[in-house]
Design a protein around this nucleic acid. Sequence first.
DNA 1: ATCGGCCGTACGTTATCACGTACAGGCGTA
DNA 2: TACGCCTGTACGTGATAACGTACGGCCGAT
Lengths: 197, 197
Amino acid sequence: MSTAIDAASVTAIGSRVRALREAMDLSLRDLAERCGVSAPMLSQVERGETSPTLQIATRIAHGLDLRLSQLLRLDEGGAVTIVRTEERRKGPSSAAGHRYEVLTPPLPGQRAELSRHVLAPGTATGGAGDPPMHEPGARETALVENGRVVLHCDGAEYALANGDCVTFDADLPHHFENPGPDEASLLAVVSAGLRRS
Amino acid sequence: MSTAIDAASVTAIGSRVRALREAMDLSLRDLAERCGVSAPMLSQVERGETSPTLQIATRIAHGLDLRLSQLLRLDEGGAVTIVRTEERRKGPSSAAGHRYEVLTPPLPGQRAELSRHVLAPGTATGGAGDPPMHEPGARETALVENGRVVLHCDGAEYALANGDCVTFDADLPHHFENPGPDEASLLAVVSAGLRRS
DNA sequence: ATCGGCCGTACGTTATCACGTACAGGCGTA
DNA sequence: TACGCCTGTACGTGATAACGTACGGCCGAT
């Protein structure tokens, strides 16, 4: 089932490996020694004649000083995508005092989603209708643009001032709160984002 | 060689698949039908008793509405890391008219690097000493904070106004230019960041 | 010209992946 | 209780991934 797509991506991996290997100026045997995979196997993989095991693929990636996930990241579409200011997707203006916009395009291959959140004094993200918690493995980076906010993450609190940048596991329960007297805004980068069907 | 690491990550993948499947409330046979892989195979993969082929792994990922690269991204670890405003790493102030700061911590597990670039009128990123081009597979998202910039990517040019957001493959040759009369600043999110040895 | 060394690939063997079927255990219903 | 239905796993078979070895082709050195 869907073997066509599979085959395509598999051969893509192959040429990718070859390109990287040649870019590093390694012979098949060099790479074979680096990663513990036989040279003929590498040759077959590069030519798309076989689909390596995750185990083997991991070793190949490591031999190229890559993580397997990085090696496979050639799938999702290339080119350039622009989202103009007026095209931004607005989040539901549900929770009082909290509004946000998503700045990145809604592509499935998108690895990082950028959004800007504005919090009125005394309000917080995570109200009903807000994006609550992220999928397992998700990771979030937030930059405080204006004002002060408090990050509540997995029970703990972290006070953040203007310009501070915080990174945390987004699959833990979390939300941002604006305690101060002034309006606060922050940029959030969520890297991961899977989706139910 | 390095079979220990392999085994670890492979079994990790397994539990990951199981967690995701259960989170989607699917039985083995449900997922089997969704992705075209037999239920017993899925069971073995989930328990780490076998290392699936890239082909099979791809199908499994698709059955979970994921790209394989996303499924494998469970590597690097967690917690919360804060970079205060005054702790930011400054980029080399080499190129005249271009200065930048890195906002995210220098952790190896970091998936997305956030940086702010300021361009004086008539200048561009990519001068000598600047971060030139990114590793293969890297992907970059940029948000124009102030002024106007032109993205040069792989030969083509893209005019960006204040507030525009652009996403592109960062392993292509690219740089930003500020043509306008005013100073321009932009936030860049680079997701990937691998490293040669 | 000829040899040595390295390149990438074709061959044959073994290990194991992936399948279909068949089984033990839990749950709601008749 | 006994039945049907579903869950997840053990078994045996065919396909194939991965190995080691061996071959033709290319380049530099002697």
